[in-house]
Design a protein around this nucleic acid. Sequence first.
RNA 1: GGCGCGUUCGUCUAGUGGUCCAGGACGCCGCCCUCUCAAGGCGGAGAUCACGGGUUCGACCCCCGUACGCGCUACCA
Length: 485
Amino acid sequence: MENIRVRFAPSPTGYLHVGGLRTALYNYLFARRNNGKFILRIEDTDRNRFVEGAVENLIEALKWCGLEFDEGPEVGGSFGPYMQSQRLDIYQKYVQELISNGNAYYCFCSQQRLEVLKEEQQKQKLPQAKYDKHCLTLSKKEVEEKLANKDPFVIRLNIEPNHRIIFDDIVRGKVEFDSNNVDDQVLIKSDGYPTYHLANVVDDHLMQISHVIRGEEWLSSTPKHVLLYDSFKWERPIFAHLPLLLNPDRSKLSKRQGDVAVEDYRTKGFLKEALVNFVALLGWNAGDDQEFYYMNELIEKFTLERVNKAGAVFDLEKLNWLNAEHLRKKSNEELFILLKQEILNSQFSINNYNDSYLLRVIAAMKERVSFVHEYLTKSPYFFEAPKEYEETAVQKNWNHETPAQLQKLSDEFNILVNPEKEDYEHALHKVAEELNVGKGKLIHPLRLAVSATSTGPGVFDIVVILGKEETISRIKNALEKIKIS
RNA sequence: GGCGCGUUCGUCUAGUGGUCCAGGACGCCGCCCUCUCAAGGCGGAGAUCACGGGUUCGACCCCCGUACGCGCUACCA
């Protein structure tokens, strides 16, 4: 394919929705896969919905996910400006062309008349409420008078009745509409701003967009867009309407049923690699069994032809799994950077752990965490000595003989010099033999003493990481604090 | 209501007329490994392929209808 140019065109509502991320990602993958350009265009033609800082947020979220755009706000490009609010004169120019060839017309109808019209149509049980083309009957003179008189107006698309509007969609195949079901859509609002329908078509053409890849919610208005391309005698882009992302109850993914913003997932500790991987698989697969992907692999394999038609439920369980998978694939050094940051934002920020210590903690817990923050919540004992001990673990692993046995173990540890993991193991083995008890009688209480819990890495791994002094100190502490009846 | 789109295990999905009494993944359950918890390995439960008609020697795959779901139906995108 030649000259592939695609765009992600969000309205700046304040944050990047995960559905938006999926749309942006598919655009990005398609562009990179085909050596095309990925463009960001901001659809800010609704002045009532202006949100301060929304564009910056959007760009920040896209960048975090690794979706770098080739043209757009901040980076520029030769088809700018990339903010629709800065292109108003362009839309005016083109809509005049439409008016002069009869494909659009001025409409001076008041809000009230439109409401009355709608009510009447509903009363008559008409299949659909539509504008009645009332202002199309105005003479040229009447229009000029009203314009001169500064009467408020909108400009509407003049849809010719009784014909079929047909277009192809990569995802859905041939889609067909009856023009009688398409309303004379407003193209220019009374404030002079264009509606999405006009702006989107004009910009896609001017920016030489080859493929329009967007959410399914746009499918129903595509006939209007197609008609606009035809009216301008412009070549239509290739359309691909993506299935929606759904809540667990299969309604459109919404805030009410969980997190929808990329930044929500970011603050919850999800890795960008996992989020991107997960979202890519919601509505697309390569046709093989691979589920774990890095961005470069997605780029290599992505095709629009393999995008599904049906909506997909956003399943947190699988995201969690992918997060764990991506976390485990990271090197200890990468995790080290993430963990340092995590510590800085935690109750342990006042402590200073040395690098090699943290690296050893990372290695020991790697298979046991799904999130970086779980290093702190699942193994707090690496970050501070236990204060209280897990009750059920005490009941299960501590009895009246335990204190004496642990004391003996502690004494044995105490005579070790620069012990390695094996040295602790030998010491414990020796004590167990001398006491004539199974090793478990020592191992479990030891674990409890040093970690306050009954789960975690191998106890000798914990001990060797904590070091001899700390281990002995913790055993002493446990002996003082753990009381059983 | 109208128009459009969709419908394979709970969820994400494979499947493009015979190889499917439907394969993989997440989750769930069991076993193995084992000082615990994970990870890993092995195995299991789980889908009359929404339903009903066609077409065909043969249909998850093609056609029609029904049901259900979702989207759109704004001077919002």
